[in-house]
Design a protein around this nucleic acid. Structure first.
Length: 827
RNA sequence: GCGAGGGUGGCGGAAUUGGCAGACGCGCUGGACUUAGGAUCCAGUGCCGCAAGGCAUGAGAGUUCAAAUCUCUCCCCUCGCACCA
C-alpha cells in the first residue's frame, strides 16, 4: 500500500477534486462565440432506463469523449452534449412494471443515469442537456409534425397495421424484426386501424442517393440501401376480363419486361381491390375463403420462404398486351399487396417463385429467354426457373434480342401504345407514426365536425400530455388519452365549434429525429432552433453509437433533416457527416451458456459503479478502450482491468520520479527523445484511425522503456513529461490533469496544445535486419541505417549461423531490402 | 438462399504497398523484497524437443527468394436481408 497521500495515486480523490474544479471553472461549457473552428461530437443519447448504464454503454461514451477531448486539444471549439430520449416504450414499460407514473419514473431514471454519466468524467456541457419528454422540447416535435402536415407529408389512413399484443400498440414496419416486436419479441399481429403516416417514401430516392456523400460504415449504408430497396422495372397494363365479362385494367410491376411473352398467368395479392370484382360465381366461395385465411395470417407466417405456395383461380382471364394471349388470373398470398401494384405477371420459366407455383397448379411454362446455363432434365424440360440473362425467343418481333436490351425495347413498345411505362419501385413504405400509448407526444390534430381534420395552430403548442392516473395501454386500439374527456373535448381552432383531439401519440423515434438540432440552441424559446446557429454547428462531425440504430433512428433523422431543409429551415440536408459504430461489449451468460451481448435478461451485465469505486474512472475509461478494437464486439473480462490499473499507477510513478530528476532538453538522452516523438506519432496516428486499443499499448511500451532505474537516473526533460501527459489526457483526463498540476502548471491541461512530432527523430541510426536463408530467419544483424548492399552482404556471409546453414551448398541468389531483410537462396 | 464481416498462443488482441508472426495486456512459472502477499520489482512464457532443430495464423492447394497478408477450392462463426416480382 502507498505510504503517503502526497505521492500515492488515489484515483477517487483526484477525480472528485478535478470534477469539482472543472465544474467551477466551466471547463466543459462550449462558448457560443469562438475564433476556433467548430467540432460537433455527438453521442446517441440514451433512453432513461431503470437498470442504468452498464459497461457496454460506457464504451461508446468513453470513445466519444476521448475523441472530443482530442479535438479540443487540437484547437477546435468542441460541442459535446448529452440528453435524454425519454418518451416512448422503453421508458413507459419500465414505469408500468414498477407501477410508478412515467413522469416520476423517468425523472428518477434520469437522475440515476446522469449520476452514472458524470462518473465517466466526460466533458459534456450539461447546460445544454435536453429531454424529449419536456414540454419545452416536445412542443417543437409537434411543431415539426405540423410543418409536415401542411406539406402533405403527414396523413391519416386506415390500413392493416402491425400490432403488438403485449405492448398494445401499432408498430412501424421498421420496428418489426422477423415478424416480432423489436422491443419485446412478441409475435406481431395485424389490425385494421386509422393511422397517422409520414410520407417518407417521397424521400426514398434522396435518402438512397445521398448515402454516397456520407462518411459512414459501408455496412450501415448498405443496410439502408437494402431497406429502401430501389428497383427499376416497368409497369405493364393487362386487360382483365372478369368471369361475368366486364373488363378492368390491371397494372403489374415487373423488373423483367423482357419475359412478358412468357407470362402464363397473372396473380393478385389477396388484398387487391379488384379481387372481388372479377371473381366468378363458381369461384366465389373458394376465393373468399382463401382471402379471409390469408388476411388472418400474420406477416411472419405469410413471409416464410420455405412455405409451400398456395393460391386459387378467380375465374377471370387477363389479356397479355404484347400478344393478346389470354391467361388465367389467380389470387395467391406470395404476392404482397404493399409492393409494386400488388399484382404480378407470372413467368414460371424465368422466376423461381412462379415456377414453383406453376408446377403445383399445373400451369404452363413457356421459355422466352434462351441460355445454355438453364438447368434441365434429360428431356430438355426446365428443372428450375432460369433467372439469368440470355437471348429472347418465342417473343415475336423481339426474338434474337439480348434480354438486357429487350427489357428496354419491350417497354418502349408498350409505352408507344399506352400499355406500360418504365417504373421505379421501392421497398420502403410510409412510416406509421401513431402509437396507442400514453407516454409520447400527443399528435397535434383536432377533429371538427364542420372543418374536419385541423392542425393545432403553432401558437397553441404544445398540446400538453395530460397528467393521468391510468396510463396503462388499453388494448382497444385507442390510446389511454381517449378515456380523458378533458383532454379529448376541445374547440375547433378554426370555427370554435366543439371538436375532439387526436388521442394517439407519436412513436419513440419522433424526438430523436431532430434532437441534434436542439443542442446548439437548447434554450431557444420561440423556435425549435436558430438557423444561423445550427448552420454553424451542423452537420454533426462525428456521431457515435451502436449499430442497432442503422435503420430506424438514422433513417428517420435523415428524413426529418431533409424535410426541414426543403422547407428552408436548414442549409444542410444530411445531419451526420461521419458515423462511427462501436462494437458491443459481450460477456459469457450463465443462462444461455454463450457469449452474449450484455443485457439484463441474459443476466450478464457488468455494472461500472463498483469498478469506478475500486479502480477509479480513469482506469475504467482506459480499460473500456484497451479491451479491443472499438468497432468490433469485445468480451469483458473482470481480470484484465488490473493491467490497466497497474499501467496508470506506473504512469503516475514515472511522472513523479521524472519530475524529481528533470534535466534540460540538451542533456536528455537522444533515445528518450526518439521514444517520446515516436509515442507522439503513434498516439496521433492511432487516434486518427480510431485504433484506441493500440494507442494505449503504445503508452505501455513507452513506460516499459522509460520506467527503469537507469533511465530515471539519467533524467528526462520537462517537455518529455508534458508531451506524455497531454497525449494521455484524453484517455485518463483526471490523472493527467492532476499530474499536470503537480508538474507546476497553472492552467488546465486541456488548454494545452496537442504536440507535433519530428519525423526525423522517429528512426534510430542503427536498425536490426533479419537474415534469412532460403526464406527462413536464421539470425539478425545490426547495421547502420541505409547501409549499402555490398557491405551488408559481406557482414551476413561472415555470420557463423549463416555459414553453418550454407555448408557445402552454394549461394545462387540473394535478396536485399534496405534496412529490413537479407535473404540468401542456397542450393 | 442472398449480402457483409470474421477465424492468429491458455485468454483479450498486435502485425496486411508480401519482408523477423504473436506488440501490449491478462493469466501462468520461477525469483527478489517481506511476519505475510491477492502489493511492488526482476526474469521467463506459441507448440514439440535435453539440444541442434522442427512445426505453427480455420483446412487444402497455388504464386513468390519470402504469404496471417495475394489467387483458387472447401469448412466454421457472427451480423444484416429474406416470396420485394
Amino acid at each position: 500500500m502507498p505510504r503517503s497521500d502526497e505521492s500515492a495515486y488515489l484515483p477517487r480523490k483526484i477525480e472528485v477534486k478535478w470534477r469539482k474544479i472543472w465544474e467551477e471553472t466551466g471547463a466543459h461549457i462550449t462558448p457560443e462565440q469562438s475564433s476556433r473552428p467548430k467540432y460537433y461530437c455527438l453521442d446517441m443519447f440514451p433512453y432513461p432506463s431503470g437498470s442504468g448504464l452498464h459497461v457496454g454503454h460506457w464504451r461508446g461514451y468513453v470513445l466519444s469523449d476521448v475523441w472530443a477531448r482530442y479535438k479540443k486539444l487540437q484547437g477546435f471549439n468542441v460541442l459535446h452534449p448529452m440528453g435524454w430520449d425519454s418518451f416512448g416504450l422503453p421508458a413507459e414499460n419500465d414505469a408500468i412494471k414498477k407501477q410508478i407514473h412515467p413522469e416520476i419514473c423517468v425523472r428518477r431514471n434520469i437522475d440515476n443515469m446522469k449520476r452514472q454519466l458524470m462518473e465517466i468524467g466526460a466533458m459534456y456541457d450539461w447546460n445544454r442537456e435536453i429531454n424529449t419528454s419536456s414540454p419545452e422540447y416536445y412542443r417543437w416535435t409537434q411543431w415539426i409534425f405540423i410543418q409536415m402536415y401542411n406539406q402533405g407529408l403527414a396523413y391519416r389512413k386506415e390500413m392493416p397495421v402491425n400490432w403488438c399484443p403485449k405492448d398494445k400498440t401499432v408498430l412501424a414496419n421498421e420496428e418489426v424484426i422477423d415478424g416480432r416486436c423489436e422491443r419485446c419479441q412478441t409475435k406481431v399481429t395485424k389490425r385494421q386501424l386509422p393511422q397517422w403516416m409520414l410520407r417518407i417514401t417521397a424521400y426514398a430516392e434522396r435518402l438512397l442517393s445521398d448515402l454516397d456523400k456520407l462518411d459512414w460504415p459501408e455496412k450501415v449504408k448498405l443496410m439502408q440501401r437494402n431497406w429502401i430497396g430501389r428497383s427499376e422495372g416497368a409497369t405493364i397494363i393487362f386487360n382483365l376480363i372478369s368471369a361475368s365479362g366486364e373488363t378492368h385494367n390491371l397494372q403489374v410491376f415487373t423488373t423483367r419486361p423482357d419475359t412478358l411473352f412468357g407470362a402464363t398467368y397473372v396473380v393478385l395479392a389477396p388484398e387487391h381491390p379488384l379481387v372481388k370484382n372479377i371473381t366468378g360465381v363458381g369461384q366465389r366461395k373458394s376465393v373468399e375463403d382463401y382471402v379471409r385465411e390469408s388476411l388472418e395470417k400474420s406477416e411472419l407466417e405469410r413471409t416464410q420462404v420455405t412455405r409451400e405456395k398456395t393460391g386459387v383461380f378467380t375465374g377471370a382471364m387477363a389479356v397479355n398486351p404484347v400478344n393478346g394471349s389470354r391467361v388465367p388470373v389467380w389470387v395467391a398470398d406470395y404476392v404482397l399487396a404493399h409492393y409494386g401494384s400488388g399484382a404480378i405477371m407470372a413467368v414460371p420459366a424465368h422466376d423461381q417463385r412462379d415456377f414453383e407455383f406453376a408446377r403445383k397448379y399445373e400451369l404452363p411454362v413457356v421459355e422466352v429467354i434462351s441460355s445454355n446455363q438453364a438447368v434441365r432434365d434429360a428431356n430438355g424440360y426446365l428443372l428450375q426457373a432460369y433467372e439469368g440473362e440470355g437471348v429472347m425467343i418465342n417473343s415475336g418481333c423481339f426474338d434474337g434480342l439480348p434480354s438486357e436490351k429487350g427489357k428496354r425495347k419491350v417497354v418502349e413498345w408498350l409505352k408507344e401504345r399506352n400499355l406500360g411505362d418504365f417504373t421505379v419501385t421501392y421497398k420502403l413504405r410510409d412510416w406509421i407514426f401513431s402509437r396507442q400509448r400514453y407516454w409520447g407526444e400527443p399528435i397535434p390534430i383536432v377533429y371538427c365536425e364542420k372543418c374536419g381534420e385541423v392542425p393545432v395552430p403553432e401558437k397553441n403548442l404544445p398540446v400538453l400530455l395530460p397528467r393521468v392516473e391510468k396510463y396503462q395501454p388499453s388494448g382497444t386500439g385507442q390510446s389511454p388519452l381517449a378515456t380523458i374527456p378533458e383532454f379529448v373535448n376541445t374547440q375547433c381552432p378554426g370555427c370554435a365549434s366543439p371538436a375532439k383531439r387526436e388521442t394517439d401519440t407519436m412513436p419513440q423515434w419522433a424526438g430523436s429525429s431532430w434532437y441534434f438540432l436542439r443542442y446548439p440552441n437548447p434554450h431557444l424559446k420561440d423556435a425549435p432552433f436558430d438557423r444561423q446557429t445550427v448552420d454553424k454547428w451542423l452537420p454533426v462531425d462525428c456521431y457515435i453509437g451502436g449499430v442497432e440504430h442503422a435503420i430506424l433512428h438514422l433513417l428517420y433523422a435523415r428524413f426529418f433533416t431533409k424535410v426541414l431543409y426543403d422547407l428552408g429551415y436548414l442549409s444542410f440536408d444530411e445531419p451526420f457527416a461521419r458515423l462511427f459504430n462501436q462494437g458491443m461489449v459481450c460477456k459469457y451468460s450463465e443462462k444461455t451458456g454463450k457469449l452474449e451481448k450484455m443485457s439484463k435478461s441474459k443476466g450478464n451485465v457488468v455494472n461500472p459503479d463498483p469498478l469506478v469505486e475500486q479502480y477509479g474512472t480513469d482506469t475504467v475509461r482506459v480499460y473500456e478502450l484497451f479491451i479491443g478494437p472499438p468497432e468490433l464486439d469485445s468480451e469483458w473480462s473482470d481480470q484484465g482491468i488490473e493491467g490497466v490499473y497497474r499501467f496508470l499507477h506506473r504512469a503516475w510513478k514515472w511522472v513523479l520520479s521524472a519530475k524529481e530528476h528533470l534535466v534540460s532538453g540538451e542533456k536528455e538522452d537522444q533515445e528518450v527523445k526518439r521514444q517520446i516523438h515516436r509515442l507522439t506519432f503513434r498516439v496521433t496516428e492511432r487516434l486518427e484511425g480510431f485504433k484506441f486499443n493500440t494507442a494505449i499499448s503504445s503508452f505501455m511500451e513507452f513506460l516499459n522503456f522509460a520506467l527503469t532505474a537507469e533511465r530515471i537516473k539519467a533524467g528526462f526533460c520537462l517537455e518529455t513529461v508534458e508531451r506524455f501527459l497531454i497525449l494521455l489526457s484524453p484517455f485518463a483526463p483526471h490523472l493527467a490533469e492532476e499530474l499536470w498540476e503537480k508538474t507546476n502548471h497553472q492552467s488546465s491541461i486541456f488548454t494545452a496544445k496537442w504536440p507535433d512530432y519530428d519525423r526525423s527523430l522517429l528512426e534510430a541510426e542503427t536498425v536490426e535486419i533479419a537474415v534469412q536463408v532460403n526464406g527462413k530467419v536464421r539470425d539478425t544483424l545490426m547495421i547502420n541505417k541505409g547501409e549499402k548492399e555490398s557491405l551488408v552482404l559481406e557482414k551476413v556471409l561472415a555470420l557463423e549461423s549463416v555459414k553453418r546453414q550454407i555448408g557445402e551448398k552454394k549461394v545462387v541468389k540473394h535478396v536485399f531490402i534496405p534496412d529490413r531483410i537479407v535473404n540468401l537462396v542456397v542450393k
